[in-house]
């Protein structure tokens, strides 16, 4: 047997191993995606899809204010959620990594992300119990006499943001914590040794070195948040719809698949734009 045929056989076998995964991804991800992209260029007449290439769906998106508004709603909510979650999670991760004794850290972390493991649908619902008119917060505030009328805190943007932040604080605490403890303690010692005070060490050394972790977490938050349908649907009320809700409306009540496809492509583009903005930090060279 010559080496060439041996290599050929090895390569054929390797193709055999990788093929099922490739075929699966191609058939059930790439093809549907391309099909949807194509469909976004078709249009609907009655219940039929007309396969005539045009940009009508996109044109409609930019001219119909309800549609365009859903994108800005999505972006506003997602950005608010991302920023708030990072601002809340970073100190938490820092305290767990720095202040909590080493042997309790794992416990503290598991505890901090425990509600992560409830059902996603139920988690949004449970905020309804807290925020609704008869909910815990309103009853408590009424009970101690701080307010005389129940506050409108459920079924609006605030409720959506709270529900999202709750979820993503847990996610980000996890990613930022793992980033923080990976830092060699010598970086901080070196900075202190060279005369940096606590704040300078944090600002010039710890923060820049954990920035990749923050950006990865923030990007993940952005992607999951902007594509989510459940939380705004349960907590957001009907006044400010976000893009996924509008998409669901298209395939539900209106049976307008081409429009839903076009809106999905727009959602996709928003994620891609976020990726390009974060790409600089998503990978960093390590010494």
């Amino acid at each position: 047997m010559t080496t060439a045929t041996l290599e050929d056989r090895e390569r054929r076998r390797a193709w055999g191993f990788v093929a099922p995964a490739l075929i699966w991804t191609f058939a059930f991800f790439v093809v549907p995606f391309l099909y949807m992209a194509a469909m976004s260029l078709w249009s609907r007449q009655g219940r039929e899809i007309v396969r005539v290439w045009n940009l009508d769906n996109y044109a409609r998106f930019f001219t119909e204010s309800a549609l365009l508004k859903s994108l800005t709603n999505s972006l506003e909510i997602t950005l608010t959620v991302t920023v708030l979650s990072v601002l809340l999670a970073y100190p938490l991760a820092w305290i767990i990594a720095e202040r909590v004794p080493k042997r309790w850290q794992r416990m503290a972390l598991i505890l901090a992300i425990l509600p992560f493991w409830t059902s996603y649908v139920v988690r949004s619902y449970s905020w309804l119990l807290v925020l609704s008119k008869g909910g815990v917060i309103n009853q408590a505030l009424l009970g101690i006499g701080l307010i005389s009328e129940p506050l409108e805190i459920a079924s609006n943007r605030t409720a959506t943001v709270i529900g999202f932040v709750h979820f993503f604080v847990m996610l980000l605490t996890l990613t930022i914590y793992s980033n923080l403890i990976q830092l060699s303690p010598n970086y901080r010692r070196a900075a202190a040794d060279l005369g940096a005070n606590g704040f300078q060490t944090f600002w010039h050394v710890v923060l820049p070195l954990t920035l990749p972790g923050i950006m990865t977490g923030a990007f993940l938050t952005f992607v999951l948040c902007i594509g989510d349908y459940i939380t705004p649907q349960i907590l957001g009320g009907n006044n400010e719809l976000v893009l996924p809700q509008i998409i669901m409306l298209q395939i539900g009540r209106r049976a307008d698949f081409p429009m839903a496809a076009a809106l999905s492509i727009i959602l996709m583009l928003a994620v891609t734009a976020a990726y390009l903005l974060c790409a600089r930090w998503l990978k960093i060279e390590r010494a």
């Binding site: 010692r189 070196a190 040794d193 060279l194 005369g195 005070n197 820049p208 070195l209 920035l211 010494a287």
Partner: peptide
């Protein structure tokens, strides 16, 4: 920070996000 000593660490602890000139100048900046 206030000692007349500096330490050269075993893993060097060079700040990976800074250029060499900024690494060397860090103590002066502080």
């Amino acid at each position: 920070a206030l000692r007349p000593t500096t330490t050269m660490f075993q893993d060097y602890a060079l700040f990976p996000h800074m250029r060499l000139i900024d690494n060397v100048g860090f103590g002066l900046r502080m």
